[in-house]
Nucleic acid binder design. Structure first.
Length: 466
RNA sequence: GGUGCGGUAGCCAAGCGGUUAGGCAGUGGAUUGCAAAUCCACCUAGAUCGGUUCGACUCCGAUCCGCACCUCCA
């Protein structure tokens, strides 16, 4: 089977075949570091994480670049408001971003280029566009890209270029542009920019938004690379403009595939501050949910579908994860000290292939999760009838880890049994043999306060992290 | 106006032209000192109206409803 992905450019599913046949070079649009990222942002980063993990599962190598947009209207405005230099201001949010990624068990990308570290590359790219006749300078000193010079402009978004003049948000004041839809490559300095300014052949100013991604992606991945991703809202104008800039400058195809994830919505509406349905990851963790539960939630719908975020789903995820943890804990116990994995039991033998078949179909996460729950169900049923061997259990446990390399939610959180807990468990066992149920239940309540649940089984009491 | 996505059982969410998706919640039972966990059983849907077909949730058409994008929002 082959991994097939939905390419926004062709609007169809295509087999992922890296340009060099074995290594996928991917560029994933990253955060604007002016605030803590919200869970809608993380939906996109989660999709990209699942994608890179599955690409690796398929046996390809991966080089992922994720940019940090640290210069734009928002970062400038906020840093001035707080009286901080731009870099000092964004540093806080860059650190918070990496912190949040770790909490969500998102694998780090290979490169995190910051826009402010690549101004010379952007200037060089704009110069090339000037040489080739795609760029022009307007009266206010800003440099624009002339979309009329790029015949295929609009191919990604499938824009009706004639119909664009009826668009809702065309700026009425931009008299000095050749075409209202031309976009800025370089923005001339304005006082609102404070000390955020660079010299360029066209005067002092700062780069436009789109140029950073073109400059940094081509620097780190080459003029043509495999995969470019982002949220659906990036299709236009951001990605359309990147294509126009990059392909005009190099004369070569830019990204081979384009993938875009749908929105995370809250109560059926796009998250926004004005609607009051805006959540950062931090806020959710402060409410007592774990990064793992949030990860499960962000992973739970197909990436191109909009995902309705709800706290009651988070609660449901907790129950589902508990069930998975229980199964895995049983495997670990059954494996004991066994070091040599045997054959998978019949109920687990088809799981890997079924999982891959689902994921091969444009990351069908729902189908993939179903194969795991099917295995858990079948395994529990089989083990209720006959125990499995340590070798079999170890094989299942290895499979579990292999699948978790893709999902990142299967492995239970680390929970060490400290001496106090072990002592309580021992005391409870004594109380139970004496049939002192009041004492036994009191200790069980105490263990629950410490975050442990105890279950009595034919093999003796077992502890589980709550 | 243009472009795109969607409407599936109490909730979330998939595949599929004919065979139980899955998860959560709920109900009954087994098990348990009581629990927990587990197992068994039940809960079996496809916005509306047409069409194609031996047969449609699945294909086609229309309608209704929801959401998003249309110049810097993942």
């Amino acid at each position: 089977m082959a991994f097939r992905i939905y390419n926004t450019m062709t609007r169809s599913k295509e087999e992922l075949v890296p340009l060099d046949g074995k290594h996928v070079r991917m560029y994933t649009c990253g955060p604007t570091v002016y605030n803590y990222a919200h869970i809608g942002n993380f939906r996109a980063y989660m999709f990209e994480d699942l994608l890179r993990r599955y690409i690796k599962f398929c046996g390809f190598g991966v080089t992922q670049v994720q940019n940090l947009t640290d210069v734009d209207d928002k970062t400038i405005r906020s840093s001035i408001e707080q009286g901080l230099p731009l870099r000092k201001y964004t540093k806080k949010y860059i650190e918070a971003f990496f912190d949040d990624l770790a909490k969500l068990n998102i694998e780090p990308a290979e490169h995190y280029p910051a826009a402010t570290d690549h101004i010379p590359e952007m200037i060089a790219l704009i110069e090339t566009l000037f040489e080739k006749g795609y760029a022009y300078q307007s009266d206010d000193g800003s440099v624009y890209y002339s979309i009329d010079k790029f015949p295929t402009y609009g191919k990604l978004a499938r824009l009706d270029r004639e119909g664009m003049q009826s668009g809702a948000r065309v700026d009425q004041d931009e008299y000095d542009k050749d075409n209202a839809a031309d976009f800025a490559l370089w923005k001339a300095y304005v006082p609102e920019d404070g000390d955020v300014v660079w010299d360029s052949p066209w005067g002092r100013g700062r780069p436009g938004w789109h140029i950073e991604c073109s400059a940094m992606s081509m620097k780190l991945l080459g003029e043509s690379f495999d995969l470019h991703t982002g949220g659906v809202d990036n299709i236009f104008p951001h990605h359309e403009d990147e294509i126009a800039q990059s392909e005009a400058a190099t004369g070569k195809p830019y990204s081979k595939y384009w993938m875009h994830c749908g929105y995370l919505v809250v109560d059926g509406r796009k998250m926004s501050k004005s609607l009051g349905n805006f959540y950062t990851l931090r806020e959710i963790l402060d409410m007592g949910y774990t990064g793992r539960e949030v990860r499960y939630e962000l992973l739970s719908a197909h990436y191109r579908q909009s995902l309705n975020f709800a706290f009651k789903s988070l609660d449901a995820n907790r129950a589902a994860l508990k069930r998975l943890d229980e199964f895995y804990a049983n495997m670990v116990e059954a494996a004991g000290t066994e070091t040599e994995a045997g054959k998978l039991p019949a109920w687990a033998s088809g799981t890997r292939a079924a999982f891959a078949e689902a994921m091969d179909d444009d990351l069908n996460i729902s189908g993939a999760m179903a194969t795991i729950f099917d295995m858990v169900h079948a395994g529990n049923k089989a083990m209720a009838e006959a125990p499995i061997t340590g070798k079999e259990a170890l094989a299942v446990s290895n499979l579990w880890k292999e699948l978790d390399a893709v999902l990142g939610i299967l492995m239970p959180p680390e929970g060490q049994v400290d001496p106090e807990v072990a002592g309580l468990l021992e005391a409870r066992t004594v109380a139970r043999t004496e049939k002192n149920w009041a004492e036994s239940d009191r200790i069980r309540d105490r263990l629950a306060e410490l975050g442990w649940t105890v279950k009595d089984t034919p093999e003796g009491p077992k502890l589980r992290k709550l």
